[in-house]
Amino acid sequence: MKPKTEQQLRAISRHFRPLLQDGTRPVEFIGRIAAEVPDLLRHGMRGRDFRYYLDLCGVQALPIVLLICLLMGMVMAINGQIQLSKFGQELLVADAVGLVVVKELGPLMVALVMTGWAGSAFAAEIGTMKLDEQICALETMGIRPESFLVFPKLSAMLLSMPLLTIFGNVAGILGGMLVGITIMKITPVAYWTRTLEAINITTFVLGVLKSFPFAILVTFAGCFCGFNAANNSQGVGRGATKAVVSSIFLIVVADVIITVLYSFIGY
């Protein structure tokens, strides 16, 4: 009887151990990077890498971000028009689009686009570097690969994501305005005035602020999945997928938490 229970317990623990390890690994990863922050402050980081990632995650991602946000703004305006025209309140579309874009959709869409754009790229890049022993090379050069590879990405993302969110917000509002002007025949001035009335500085700034945690999550998820990818080409592919899926999940969870926190201060 006793050996059997023990066996069962062992079997169960065998199943749970990887889960437990999966849980502690990201924490350890974050800890390693955090431990390197003082060193980063002392030495700084390679400007070239930072510029490369700012270019990748900012400049190059801008067109797709603008396009997606513009289209989302249009979609929302069209849907809003269908509903609000029942009450003869088409002008409120401006309020709805402006508020939703600035508060929620802008930061969220940008984060999701960047997940696909940057998160997967980070994972694949680091996974390949690992496969190619570049990570080992860094380590034997006495350089910590975690911080060396993560910091430029993180700082570039922390700068580019809020900027992209600002661009995305404007694009979304313009999308709504485009629909408002062409389909609903609202004058641009009226639409613009309604939008400005609906949004206030706090809403706008709090929306943009959201993109900082999102940037951190996308970068960490991407880099973590890259570092933990299996050492073969399939592993790199899976790592990239995992990065995208997990950071989408994390972003949505973070969004919920942030929304709740914002509700405490009345927004």
């Binding site: 900012g58 900027l163 992209l164």
Partner: peptide
Amino acid sequence: NQKIKLGIFVVGGLVLFVAILFFLGM
């Protein structure tokens, strides 16, 4: 070339930010 693009991106974003703040009540 890259630096010019980065500069345009960052400055453009910041200008937009300030412009929005201005419009929204600054």
